[in-house]
Every structure is written in structure tokens, then in C-alpha cells.
């Protein structure tokens, strides 16, 4: 007896492909996300073309030591007479590389632990979720420090692996709750009643609709990786002889850069890390605004009527 002539669903979910293309376009049309993407791509290009872009060999200590920024050394030199700009450019390879590796490892693990158990029964599901929660609240950085102490100045690959294996739980948790929500949605139930297999249900109906969350999770994991790597390097627990943004700060602190007022030594590498962090945060807030329109609030004061 209802006179509604068509089904009304404001959150109508579209097919996977149009959604992907649509999301890319929406991301680009979101000013915050666009700025973030431009910064990220710029930094990746710097890392890739480091040999071309860096003015000097980053480990050559043949220059005048402790020079403030000048035209020959745009970011000055270290106490050992190395060119800081060249270190920064070469360091981006290690830092971004570890960051992306962590992003891939952690995202893969969080998909594995957050999404896959939903294929199995209730017992499997709850035990995986409990396991995730336990891993999640074990303090990550102290664990990392202890592990690296046993591994002794390890290479970038080991560091990335260790960080990735300690940093997947948060993403896994958010992905899992999204899967749980999606499984209750009409279109997934309809597909299940129509006889879709569990795997098909997951790959065709659920995963495509989680894309923005997976991307956000990947971004967070990259940031987590870069920050953790920098933290470890800063503590001298990575390989301090490999040039990375964290190890530059480690050497700056050890070389009493603060006492010698050599701000050009420790500010640029930290700023580089912060810039990546800000870029990722910008992309993420863009994704947020797209997937959660309510946050895109129009100007209005909370309490008033108009």
C-alpha cells in the first residue's frame, strides 16, 4: 500500500569498476587530496632520480665542515663535511622505500587477518579477531626496539619486514569491522541468496566496496613505516651508515648539532618526514570526505536553528 514507486537508497552501491574510476576522479577533484598526491609523486620522483638530482656524493666528506646553507651547499654541510642536500635526496630512497615496503606488507597482512577469516566459520572469525586485538595493544615501538637489538644494525629489508609485521593490527581491525557491516547490507545478502559462493561474494561484492578503506589503510601503513624507520634510525638501531632521513638526524644529534646551533643539519630531514606525513594525511582526509559526506559540513553553527 505504500506509494513509493522506486526503492530509495541514497547509498546505492555501484559496481566495482565504475567505483574505482569514480574514486580516482573524486580524489583528484578534492583540493586537499590533490595537493597530497602532487607532493607524494614529487617525492617519489626525487627518490627515483636521486643520482641525477643530488649535487654531490652523499657520503663524501670532502667539504668544509659545519657550513651554513650557501649557494654551493643549499642546505649546508655536516660536522664531517658532507653535503646535507645530497644526503637528503639520497636518504629519500631508504625512507620512502622502507615506508612503501611496510605499507605493502602491513596492508597484505591486515587483509589476510581482517578479511579472509570472514570466509570461515564463527570460531575462526572470533579467534582471528581476538588475536588481532592482542597484537594491536602490545606496544609496537618497544617491541621493535627489542627486536632490532637482537638483529644488530640490520639492513633496510629486515627493518621493513619487522615494522610491517608489528604494524598490521590496526588496519586489520578496521577492515574487519567494515567487512562485517558490508555483509549485512542488502546487496550482499541478495547476492548470497542468489547463490554466490563465499569467495565470489568477497571478491565481487565486498572488496570493491572497501577500496577506499584499503587505500586509507595503505597510506597509514606507509606513514607508520616511515615514522617507525626514522624512530629506529634516530635511536641508532638501524644501520646508521645507510643514508636515510632518520640516520641524518641520528648523526646530527650525536654531532651536537643543537649545541653548535647547526639547525640546517636536523631540521631538513625532519621536515622531509613531516612533508610526507602531511601529504599522506591530506590524501586521507580527501578519502574521508569522499566516503563520509557528513564530514564535508557546510558552514553552520551547531546549536542554532538557521
Amino acid at each position: 500500500m505504500s506509494i513509493s514507486t522506486t526503492a530509495q537508497n541514497p547509498n546505492t552501491v555501484t559496481s566495482g569498476r565504475t567505483r574505482k574510476a569514480g574514486m580516482a576522479r573524486m580524489l583528484w577533484s578534492n583540493p586537499r587530496a590533490r595537493v597530497g598526491i602532487i607532493i607524494l609523486v614529487g617525492m617519489i620522483l626525487v627518490a627515483v632520480f636521486a643520482p641525477v638530482l643530488a649535487p654531490y656524493n652523499p657520503s663524501a666528506n670532502s667539504f668544509l665542515p659545519s657550513q651554513p646553507p650557501s649557494w654551493t651547499h643549499l642546505l649546508g654541510t655536516t660536522l664531517q663535511g658532507q653535503d646535507i642536500l645530497s644526503q637528503l635526496i639520497w636518504g629519500s630512497r631508504n625512507s620512502l622505500g622502507v615506508g612503501f615496503a611496510v605499507g605493502i606488507i602491513a596492508t597484505a597482512l591486515s587483509l589476510l587477518f581482517g578479511v579472509l577469516p570472514s570466509l570461515g566459520g564463527k570460531l575462526l572469525n572470533t579467534s582471528f579477531s581476538t588475536f588481532t586485538n592482542v597484537v594491536l595493544i602490545l606496544p609496537g615501538l618497544p617491541l621493535l626496539i627489542v627486536l632490532s637489538a637482537y638483529l644488530h644494525s640490520s639492513g633496510a629489508v629486515t627493518i621493513a619486514a619487522v615494522i610491517g609485521f608489528t604494524g598490521w593490527a590496526w588496519g586489520s581491525r578496521t577492515l574487519r569491522s567494515q567487512v562485517m557491516t558490508l555483509r549485512q547490507r542488502d546487496f550482499v545478502i541478495a547476492a548470497r541468496l542468489a547463490g554466490s559462493s563465499q569467495i565470489r561474494l568477497l571478491t565481487r561484492e565486498i572488496l570493491p566496496n572497501m577500496l577506499s578503506l584499503v587505500v586509507a589503510n595503505f597510506m597509514f601503513s606507509i606513514l607508520f613505516g616511515i615514522l617507525s624507520e626514522a624512530g629506529l634510525q634516530f635511536l641508532g638501531l638501524g644501520n646508521v651508515n645507510a643514508v636515510s632521513w632518520g640516520s641524518i638526524i641520528y648523526w646530527a644529534e650525536n654531532g651536537s648539532a643543537l649545541l653548535l646551533h647547526m639547525w640546517w643539519w636536523f631540521i631538513p630531514p625532519g621536515a622531509a618526514i613531516a612533508l610526507v606525513g602531511i601529504a599522506l594525511a591530506l590524501v586521507n582526509s580527501g578519502i574521508d570526505q569522499i566516503s563520509n559526506p557528513r564530514l564535508r559540513s557546510t558552514a553552520r553553527k551547531g546549536g542554532r536553528n538557521q
Binding site: L223, A230, G231, I249, G270, A274, G277, L280, A281
Partner: peptide, 9 residues
């Protein structure tokens, strides 16, 4: 988005 230790420094 900024690392703790850098803010500290």
C-alpha cells in the same frame, strides 16, 4: 603527521 622526536628536537 610529524615525528615526536623531531618536535622534541
Amino acid at each position: 603527521a610529524i615525528p615526536y622526536f623531531w618536535i622534541a628536537l
